[in-house]
């Protein structure tokens, strides 16, 4: 109980780039700057799936990522949430064309709790989506066991 209560207030996020154009990733990196100052909201950004509460997924899920993304999702401790960022993660964007085999959207592979549209979305939008929806998703998460 206490663990869940605390985790809602300090969200550790893991950024997974699954093959976009990098635009969304640099917008997430821009969140570290003093102007946005992600850590004042209790969000800590790092790339370790075993320690995180929420995965932030960007990019079209390219062929090499399709199995690995599910593996990564399984490594995240419960309860967990997933935020998909950008046009590529939501629909494949411009890379979803005839004859191409990108695995977008992300929701085909893992359950997605929040979606942030935009090519790319602004940093403030990303931060507000994580702040608003990740605590809700963590509270509503149904454990498998």
């Amino acid at each position: 109980m206490i663990k869940d209560f605390i985790r809602k207030r300090s969200i550790n996020i893991c950024l997974v780039c699954t093959g976009g154009c990098n635009g969304c990733d640099i917008e997430v990196a821009a969140l570290l700057s003093q102007r946005y100052d992600l850590e004042q909201y209790g969000i800590y950004l790092h790339n370790n799936p075993r320690e995180c509460d929420a995965m932030v997924v960007t990019g079209t899920v390219s062929k090499q990522w399709q199995e690995k993304l599910v593996e990564l999702y399984n490594k995240v401790p419960e309860p967990k949430a997933v935020v998909a960022i950008g046009a590529c993660a939501l629909s494949g964007g411009i890379f979803q064309q005839e004859g191409e085999k990108v695995g977008a959207p992300v929701s085909n592979h893992i359950p997605v709790d929040a979606e942030v549209p935009g090519c790319p979305p602004r940093p403030a939008e990303i931060a507000s989506a994580v702040l608003k929806y990740v605590p809700v998703a963590l509270a509503n998460y149904r454990r498998k066991s």
Partner: peptide
């Protein structure tokens, strides 16, 4: 390599 391949030239 290969994690970001999207086939830009093909498109």
């Amino acid at each position: 390599l290969g994690y970001m391949y999207r086939g830009v030239e093909q498109i």
